[in-house]
Structures are given as C-alpha cells and as structure tokens.
Computed example of a mutant assay.
Amino acid sequence: MSLEQRWLRAAYGASPWLMPLYPLGGLYRYLMRRREARYRRGKKFVWHAPVPVIVVGNITLGGTGKSPLVAWLARWLVNQGWSPGIVTRGYGGKSDAYPLLVTPETAPSQSGDEPLMLAQQTGLPVVADPQRARGAQALVEMGCDILLSDDGLQHLALGRDIELVVVDGARGLGNGRCLPAGPLREAPSRLGRVDAVIVNGELSKPLPVASIAMQLMPQRWRCLRDGQHRELTPLPFRLPVHAIAGIGHPERFFNTLHSLGVEGEMHPLEDHQQFHPAALEFGDRRPVVMTAKDAVKCKDIAPPDSWVLEVEAVLPSSFEHWLAAKLSALIERGCTHG
C-alpha cells in the first residue's frame, strides 16, 4: 500500500496519528476561505460563460463518482434538446497545446484518463485544459449551449450557475477535517452553499444537509480486445480473475465485482495509475477485469482475456424534475453573463 493510500485510509477512518496535523487543517481552511473571498469581491477575475454552466465536484479527496454523474448529465441534457460540452482539467495528461479537444482516439498521455473516458462514453465535445475558463470558452466557440465542468468546484475562475457535489456514501466526509489533517478540500459548511448534494451509494454517516441518492449500476461487460459487449450473467470469463482498479476508491469497484459473483485477486492501484505491460503480467493466465477509467490506458497492452465492467449512474426522477426546473428558471431570466 502506497503512502497516499495509507493517508487516505487514515483520513477516512479518523486515525489518531493524524492528530498532530489538526492545526494545519485549520490553516488550510482559513486559506481556502480567503481565496474564495478574493474571487467573490472581484479581486480575482471570474469568466462567466454566455451559456449555463453546471459544475460537478466534491469537497473530499479520493473518488466519489463524479465522472459517472457527468456522463449521466451529458446524456440527459442531450435528451432534453441541449448541445452540451464537457470541460475538465485533464489530470494525468500533458499536451503541447491547450485547450485540447479530446476525441475517442486521443492518446491518454495527452488528455488524461477521465477526459478520454468521457469522450468515449458520451460522444460529445470534451476539452481538457488546466485553465478551465479557457477550455470553457473554446466549447462555447464550438457551439455548445450548456457546459459541464468536471471536478470544477474549487476552480473559481470559471463562473457557474449550478453546483453539484458528489459524496461517497461509504466514506462520507471522513474525519471531517481539511487537508492535511483530513480528506476535505473545503469545510463541511460548503455543502450548505451548493445547489444539490448527491450521495453515491448508501450513506453510512449523516451529512449536515439533505442529499439525493445516486447508484452506480453495472450495465454490461466489454471485451477490451475487440470492444464487443456481453451480458452481466452468465460471466463471459472464467474464475478466478485478477481485478485492477486505479481509481480513487478501489474498494467500491471490488465490492461491485463481488456482488456479481466475480472472485479472485484484487489489486488496488494509485488513482490515475500509469500502466506498462509488466504491470498487467501476473504470471498466470487468469482473466483481467478492470474499470472503464483504467481501460482507456490499457487497451494496447492488456492481455487478450481482459474485460471492462461498464457502469452507469442512476438518479431518481425527482432529481430530473428539479434540474429541469432549475434550467428553465435560468432560461427565463436570460442566463447570458457575457
């Protein structure tokens, strides 16, 4: 287990060895409040798009399920008649020129894993740019009439009309403390100032605000080699397997596999893990099972018997009605900031 994984486990488990860092958590919280105030008072520039902007983010480190929600929102918006675009930082990628338009054929070394995954899953314009406001402007110039900012809650240089925060139901807010004493990017009170808090999975600890339930439901298996899809049952591969997960919360993926009857060796990896062929050589011929996020980096190096579990977010109809009403209100008051 890496140092980062050990720290995350301690932060979410309220381990006592983090107690000496508590004063630093208070300092971090103060600095975040001061930074937010500078944007709010106009001391730092905020670019407001001439179209609605929906930010999907979290206030914790580690995976919460933001990308599946972004993909769900993208599909839902298309069904409502919108032409959405997705802007993201492109963590783990490095391009010679930004903004980078990510297509299903873009190299993950340029775009990062999550932008490429979203481009493949949605077929919509996805732009990666460390300066999200610049990336958002590029999407507007492409003709997008609504923008989704993936993991953009703390990137205040891009104005927003709707803020959605995703919380991992199993881990919640951890020990409730800010970095480096805990997993929080912002104080828990931030949840009271966003438009909706969405909980991925069953909530194990109460939150200080009301929330909306989201489930990540397995949909199908995809053979990584030929792209063909198979039903969830019967399993299209033999057991046992090697399961890999380079995501923020690998245990969630492994628990899903167990619920489908998949058994074998589970290999938790670093979030945004960079792969090389040796990392997928386990010395036997067991099938390899992975997440869609890992698959975009493993397609050309994975063993022939490799499988991807595709999942999709499921949200209640009440959330759809709320979001439709929210967007209608924006249109009625002329959501054109430019």
Rank of each mutant, 00 (worst) to 15 (best):
A187G: 15
A187K: 05
W82I: 10
A325H: 08
G152R: 03
R193H: 13
A243K: 08
V127W: 12
R238Q: 13
I86F: 00
A279T: 04
G13W: 14
G176F: 03
G123S: 06
G65S: 15
V165T: 14
W82F: 15
W47Y: 06
A329Y: 05
K293W: 10
R160E: 10
D226P: 09
S306M: 05
Q131P: 05
E114S: 02
P208N: 04
Q80W: 08
D226E: 11
S111Y: 06
G90L: 08
R285D: 10
R225T: 14
A74I: 07
W82N: 14
W47I: 09
T103F: 03
M266P: 03
Q215V: 12
A279E: 05
R222W: 00
P250Q: 06
H48R: 04
I331V: 14
G172E: 08
R41G: 04
V308G: 01
A245H: 05
G334D: 07
G261Q: 10
F319D: 06
I86R: 09
Q5L: 07
G42K: 04
A213K: 12
P316H: 04
G90S: 14
A133M: 04
L156K: 10
H48D: 02
S211L: 11
P268C: 10
W322M: 12
W307T: 08
E332G: 12
A157E: 14
L191P: 08
G152A: 14
K44T: 11
V87R: 05
A187C: 06
K326L: 00
F282N: 01
V296H: 00
L148K: 12
A302I: 05
R160F: 11
V56G: 03
P125I: 06
W76F: 13
N79W: 01
P104Y: 12
W307P: 15
L153T: 05
L100P: 00
C335F: 04
T256S: 15
Y91G: 13
V102E: 05
D226T: 04
V51P: 11
R193Q: 15
L315I: 04
D294V: 03
Y98Q: 01
S259Q: 13
I247N: 09
E163V: 05
P130K: 03
A37W: 13
S328V: 13
G62W: 07
L147K: 08
Q80R: 15
A128L: 01
G261R: 07
D96T: 04
A210W: 08
I162V: 15
T60W: 09
A128I: 01
K205Q: 11
L191H: 14
W322T: 03
R185L: 02
G26S: 07
P16I: 02
D96M: 12
T60F: 11
W76N: 12
G264H: 00
L269D: 12
H229N: 12
Q273N: 02
R75I: 11
